[in-house]
Design a protein around this nucleic acid. Structure first.
Lengths: 332, 332
DNA sequence: TTGTAAGCGTTATCAT
DNA sequence: ATGATAACGCTTACAA
């Protein structure tokens, strides 16, 4: 049987209350008593039992990260795990634990309800991918601290945190303008189905407006094949763009391959830029200038905000955005 | 305040002991009593408090997955998160929770020791990346159920689970032989630093031995640039290989690009094959035949084995390997 | 500054 | 089949 607080108290010649206070640092204990108890605890390898502590404190030091964990999700959406990594590291540093809960969108409301009743976690971070209106309504009623990672796709009375995509768009276009490119094409996702690209477009247009310029918009799939098709179309024109800005790396890879096949030089003949550093922009040749999304930081900040909400439940921050970074490489 | 077992017992007109038994299904309770109590629990939205239950049961239903969670790890090693996903899903199905613990290799022994003393989890799954001899020694003494995800890089008295890399190598080469390619080049990692490639090579050579053939081995970085350089060297020969087998997708992308630049046809003039389905083999054109690593299944099986070890601590399975899958595409 | 003792909400043992 | 009750190991008001 493992050692308990009674064993340590007996060895130290004090009561268990004094041991508890000396170790948790929340109540007044004489300095030398505290030192003595702590040294003894260390030498006897005593640690408070986590389950008993959770029970007594009515808090288990666990934050649940809930998202849809389908097979292959780590390959299709490494960004989500980068958020999780940032959150886990911040929590670990604060003595908390991140629990990973996978659930499909349609099962999320029931699962959240269940876990609230069981008091399984001190707070929940929900990935925006599983947030529905029904779930948002449930959460706004719950007293459990809760935070959405990613901007909800609909107006919702929930606290959320995301990367600032508009600012990303502005940064990207400002960089291209700085380099002297004025005829810019933007390869984005399908019309009306890609909120992130739309936000970037707003930022991009904001940057262009000051120069009274326009950006050329091409909608389509966000795939390698679409990148090839778009590039073919653009290069066939009498007046092709000076720079192509892609909303993701797969589009950019398609562009890159096609431009090189046409024996055009990058960036002398045509520049290439992409949103998102991953998974290819830094490893292809030439390397592609990118606006990086710091998902790790987003997770870190999400966890930080969560712990603040736990300490201060009245906190009603609605949203918080992390700042993107410009990564200048060979392609511009 | 949330409802407790006392409230439900009072409402049902029974003792708390009967409620506990009726809900947990481990002791004899009259069938209709059980039904009545369960229905009442459902209608009153009662759930046993998770913290109190953990305390009383001396088990918290949590399995800790410990690994090195550096920034960008989700992009550099999505496979690890695929393992985590598989494990999390199996555990969730069994009423367990996966906790994610990030720790650097050098801090792992202390962290594990700490968490064993605190009894923070019912079991640990350790990623092989943070396993050291010191840690392996510590674990073999601990009574905590423990499992390594990935084959240890050294002989160790620990239970581990991994993908069968030798079988992968055998599958890959058998497929190439089936297609009629006999002069095969294998692009692998740096000599002596890439256990996985070495295992694949053993399997590959095993398949070739039956045909009395040899494989040509090229060591180097596992990068896009190395893929280009290797391909240039191979194609410059008077007698280039009929098929190139790459140990990862980045090497394969380099090959692909170079082969196409030389206006050679794939697979008519030269075939291309890679280990690992991700992140590119299915999206480039032509798509690349690959031996897929089912990391999700590996995580799933790891969790399954962990729960078996918890139920049956005497279990001494040393290792378990999941089976790779051949994904035939356009490049062979 | 320290100690006493009452929780915390279950589970599980032992009577009945 | 059901109930009374003692754990489980800690935290924290309150008393000393």
């Amino acid at each position: 049987m493992a050692m308990t607080i009674y064993d340590l108290a007996r060895a130290a010649g004090v009561s268990i209350a004094t041991v508890s206070k000396a170790l948790s640092d929340t109540y007044a204990v004489a300095d030398d008593t505290k030192r003595r108890i702590r040294a003894l605890a260390e030498s006897m390898d005593y640690r408070p039992n986590a389950r008993a502590r959770s029970f007594a404190r009515r808090a288990n030091g666990t934050i649940l990260f809930m998202t849809d964990l389908r097979r292959n999700v780590a390959f299709e959406n490494p960004h989500m795990f980068e958020i999780i990594t940032g959150a886990a590291n911040y929590l670990a540093r604060k003595g908390y634990t991140l629990a990973l809960g996978g659930i499909a969108e349609q099962d999320a409301p029931a699962a959240i309800h269940e876990m609230i009743l069981r008091e399984q976690a001190d707070g929940v971070i929900l990935h925006a991918g599983i947030l529905t209106k029904r779930l948002a309504a449930l959460l706004s009623k719950a007293e459990l601290p809760c935070l959405v990672a990613g901007k909800p796709g609909f107006p919702a009375d929930v606290c959320w945190i995301d990367v600032n995509h508009e600012l990303s768009g502005q940064l990207a276009v400002s960089h291209l303008l700085d380099r002297g490119y004025t005829r810019i094409a933007f390869l984005m996702g399908l019309e009306g189905e890609d909120n992130i690209s739309e936000s970037r477009l707003i930022g991009a247009q904001h940057a262009l407006r000051e120069e009274e310029l326009q950006i050329e918009i091409l909608h389509g799939q966000s795939t390698y094949a679409a990148g090839i098709a778009h590039t073919d179309a653009l290069l066939a024109r009498p007046d092709p763009p000076q720079a192509i800005l892609c909303t993701n790396n797969y589009l950019a890879l398609g562009c890159l391959q096609r431009i090189r096949q046409q024996h055009l030089r990058i960036p002398e003949d045509i520049a290439l830029m992409t949103f998102d550093n991953y998974p290819l922009s830094m490893i292809v040749s030439p390397s592609i200038t990118a606006v990086g999304l710091d998902m790790y930081e987003m997770g870190w900040e999400a966890a930080r905000l969560m712990l603040r909400k736990i300490r201060q439940p009245s906190l009603r921050t609605q949203s918080y955005c992390t700042v993107p970074a410009l990564l200048v490489r060979e392609s511009t």
